[in-house]
Design a protein around this nucleic acid. Structure first.
Length: 319
DNA sequence: GTTAAACCTATTGA
DNA sequence: TCAATAGGTTTAAC
């Protein structure tokens, strides 16, 4: 990719558009700092957790691509080219996945019960729905200061509803497509992680909204839309990242280094007191208070004394 | 209207 | 090896 800092105007004319495409796909235009500041100003929980998860952006994917998955490209997508002898394939068009043997083949490829969903959805999009159906569900209005009801703009509600007709597409997947493939910023996909922190930090999971029914699903989305505004789906992604196990290692990685040092030091001494010291340091490093401290305490104790009781305690707290 | 069971495979950690 | 995790949607049953 060209850097865009060329001093040769003549060459700029045939400069490729890779940078422009990347900026668009990675959605680099919006001011992340301003957005984070706004979300932090309206939500103390966001303010507490977001600093460890900066730089989260919502991709501007193709809607059909957002609807489907990865492994498909290798077997159905057209070959784009090679990098270091490694072949790269584009995403297959829905028409490519409408053949009679597709479902069986996808099962062989390990898609499991989703094989039939993919095959049926491809048929619906390619054959049963009118031309441009999916793309026409996109948000095209980018004017600032739009009003948005808690349920979202009409276009978002329409897109969400239409997507639910597809086989294997429920509210969560529909919202993922709305958010990343169709440009509806207020879309909040509620998956298991979002449901976890909705219960832990936003008082869901009791009373009227005890379990994640459709009514609860909508209520969670409405709450976050009301709280975070028209880019609620973006704010949601920041906290989603914070809830993932793979990413949450960020919260303890530095402390683990210190923990190792502490273990060496205490080699000849008693354990309990010194473990607590480590926890304190981790707590300071993280800058995250209350319940996090407790979780880390349990985990660290588990590391040193791996008793079944402590394992149960950890599972219970981490839920 | 809500809940439970069934659907599928792959990866990771104890 | 087994449980947890990736993990929502559909269908049947209450």
């Amino acid at each position: 990719m060209r850097s865009g800092m060329s001093t040769h105007p003549i060459k700029d004319e045939d400069e490729d558009d890779t940078e422009r495409l990347l900026k668009h796909y990675l959605n680099l235009e919006p001011n992340l700092t301003a957005l984070y500041e706004y979300w932090s100003s309206v939500d103390p929980n966001f303010k507490k957790r977001a600093p460890k998860f900066t730089g989260v952006r919502i991709l501007k994917q193709d809607a059909w691509e957002a609807l489907m998955v990865n492994n498909l490209c290798l077997h159905y997508g057209p070959l784009i080219g090679h990098v270091d002898a490694q072949p790269y394939h584009d995403f297959p068009a829905p028409e490519t996945l409408t053949g009679p043997g597709v479902e069986a083949h996808l099962r062989e490829l390990g898609f499991g019960y989703r094989a039939s969903y993919i095959a049926k959805t491809a048929k619906m999009v390619a054959k049963e729905k009118p031309e441009g159906w999916l793309q026409n569900l996109s948000n095209v209005d980018h004017s600032p200061d739009q009003k948005m009801p808690p349920g979202g703009r009409d276009g978002y509600r329409k897109a969400h509803e239409e997507l639910l007709q597809l086989q294997g597409v429920g509210p969560k997947v529909a919202d993922c497509v709305c958010l990343m493939g169709l440009g509806w910023g207020e879309s909040v996909p509620v998956d298991t992680h979002v449901w976890q922190f909705a219960q832990r930090d936003y008082k869901f999971g009791k009373g009227k909204h005890k379990s994640l029914t459709k009514a609860t699903y909508d209520a969670v989305g409405d709450h976050f839309r009301q709280l975070w505004g028209i880019e609620a789906g973006w704010a949601h992604s920041v906290l989603f990242a914070a809830d993932l196990k793979t990413f949450s290692e960020r919260l303890t990685s530095k402390a683990k280094e210190i923990k190792v040092e502490e273990v060496k030091v205490k080699q000849e001494g008693e354990t309990t007191v010194e473990v607590k010291t480590v926890v304190k340091q981790e707590y300071l490093l993280n800058g995250i208070k209350d319940e996090f401290e407790e979780e880390n305490t349990v985990e660290l104790i588990k590391d040193f004394k791996d008793s079944p009781r402590n394992q149960r305690a950890k599972r219970r707290r981490l839920g």
